[in-house]
């Protein structure tokens, strides 16, 4: 759970930084997307490097889901008779929504890949012009796409707020002072990533990027 989660968080950071390149203009952003496909050349031919990254991501996602499913099944088996009266959980909202939140994020990622990687669900849908794809995606009249992206990114934020803390704890964070620090790190990462991801659709929505 913790190790695969951290790999995915590293991806999220890199992906956010890449997205922010949209503010440097169409040529620069498209050039960045093309460069992604050529890293490692001439050592590795063409898109090899990208596929290595993608494989690592898929392995992490599958591992993450496998671990989460195992935990959920164990939890269910561990309490065969349910409480008639159950207090809403006193721990954080984030901790309580990890499982459903994770499923929602997975559905989002599938939609997102069909939208901006393959272009299947994108109004422009030209993989060689990602800038145009993004701009078309978040146009004001497609507000529902922006809304869905916003909700999903916020779901990622909640997922990370508990997830990052929990991962640090699983990897041996052990003092009360360290716990306070780990919670701050998780909160800062969650808020930082949310803001970093959301500025792009909102910049398109408000016409800042067009």
């Amino acid at each position: 759970m913790a190790v695969t989660g951290i790999i995915l968080v590293l991806f999220l950071i890199a992906h956010m930084l890449g997205n922010l390149k949209i503010f440097t203009g169409a040529t620069s952003f498209d050039h960045y997307a093309h460069w992604l496909r050529e890293i490692g050349a001439p050592l590795l031919p063409g898109v090899w490097f990208l596929w290595i990254l993608r494989t690592a991501l898929v392995v992490s996602v599958v591992g993450h889901i496998w671990a989460a499913t195992t935990l959920a099944l164990r939890a269910r088996a561990a309490r065969p008779v349910r409480y008639a009266h159950r207090k809403p959980v006193q721990g954080s909202y984030a901790a309580r929504t990890m499982r459903w939140g994770g499923v929602i994020i997975l559905l989002f990622v599938i939609y997102h890949l069909l939208d901006l990687t393959t272009g299947t669900l994108n109004p422009v849908g030209d993989p060689s012009r990602p800038y145009a794809n993004v701009v078309a995606d978040f146009a004001p009249k497609r507000w529902y796409v922006t809304l869905f992206y916003t909700l999903s990114v916020v779901a990622v934020g909640f997922h990370l707020r508990h997830g990052v803390f929990s991962a640090l704890r699983s990897l041996g964070q052990q003092t009360p002072r360290g716990e306070r620090r780990a919670r701050v790190v998780a909160l800062v990462l969650a808020v930082g990533l949310c803001v970093g991801y959301l500025v792009v659709p909102f910049a398109v929505l408000t016409g800042l990027v067009s």
């Binding site: 561990a78 309490r79 006193q90």
Partner: peptide, 11 residues
């Protein structure tokens, strides 16, 4: 013993 796994929920 059939206990579940910890997810650091804090309950």
């Amino acid at each position: 013993a059939g206990f579940g796994g910890c997810t650091n929920a804090g309950e």
